[in-house]
């Protein structure tokens, strides 16, 4: 009997569609930087422009089909109102966490000045499940402190296009965005669209302490406890 995909199999499909889009966007940006169409002589410029447009169409079609397949297996959760506590106590917690984390990271990265990034929802889901294999965390802030180094080490943020004006490395961007997202999931207001800009600015204000904490769960736990009610 052929393998029939289950609902949770949709997450890698969503990731695949996003990966396709990211790779194309990044490739196009690199190509445009290396080969400015405006400087090419005609008819070369026209040919190169048509080739890029053709690639764009192929990517759009592939992305649409993959997304449609993913949606048919698992309706896309686009809610922006959630908290870590609610997610932990819900059925299918790892998938719900991963979806919320994905959206949170998008907002965090945007607030930090990065518009194009590749975030793996599949990795976030697996990391969440693995973190709970070590036993239940004593509190939601303890869980966030456990998750943060694990999400970073697992490479949940796969890649990002860093603007030239950004004053941080990819590693620091990953740390700050992950901290901001988890802080937003702990804060008293559960609307990520509202809390994340403030959480990102708070993460920036705490950047040296977040960098110093690295994988120190106790230090991260203290920071989450200290600031969760002050977003």
């Amino acid at each position: 009997m052929p393998h029939r995909p289950t609902a949770s199999d949709a997450t890698p499909l969503k990731d695949a569609a996003r990966g396709l889009r990211f790779a194309f966007d990044k490739g196009r940006a690199t190509l445009k930087q290396a080969l400015p169409l405006s400087l090419l002589p005609e008819p070369l410029a026209k040919a190169a422009g048509s080739a890029l447009a053709g690639m764009d169409q192929i990517t759009n079609a592939a992305e649409r089909q993959t997304r449609a397949l993913a949606r048919s297996l698992l309706p896309e959760d686009t809610s922006t109102t959630t908290s870590l506590d609610d997610l932990t106590n819900a059925a299918g917690a790892e998938h719900r966490f991963a979806a919320a984390f994905y959206r949170g990271m998008q907002f965090s990265l945007r607030a930090l000045g990065v518009d194009t990034a590749l975030i793996s929802e599949t990795t976030a889901s697996a990391t969440y499940a693995q973190s709970l294999q070590h036993g239940t965390a004593a509190s939601d802030t303890a869980l966030a402190a456990r998750l943060m180094p694990a999400l970073i080490a697992a490479g949940t943020l796969r890649d990002a296009t860093l603007p030239a004006t950004l004053d941080m490395t990819f590693a620091e961007l990953t740390r700050l965005a992950t901290f901001a997202t988890l802080l937003a999931l702990l804060s008293d207001d559960h609307d990520l669209t509202v809390t994340l800009p403030a959480c990102a600015n708070m993460a920036l204000a705490l950047r040296s302490e977040i960098a110093a904490a690295q994988n120190d769960e106790a230090a991260l736990h203290r920071l989450f406890d200290e600031f969760r009610h002050h977003v």
Partner: peptide
Amino acid sequence: DDRKLAAAFVQWL
């Protein structure tokens, strides 16, 4: 400047 304001807020808090 929201970033500077957040830094001042964190220090004050």
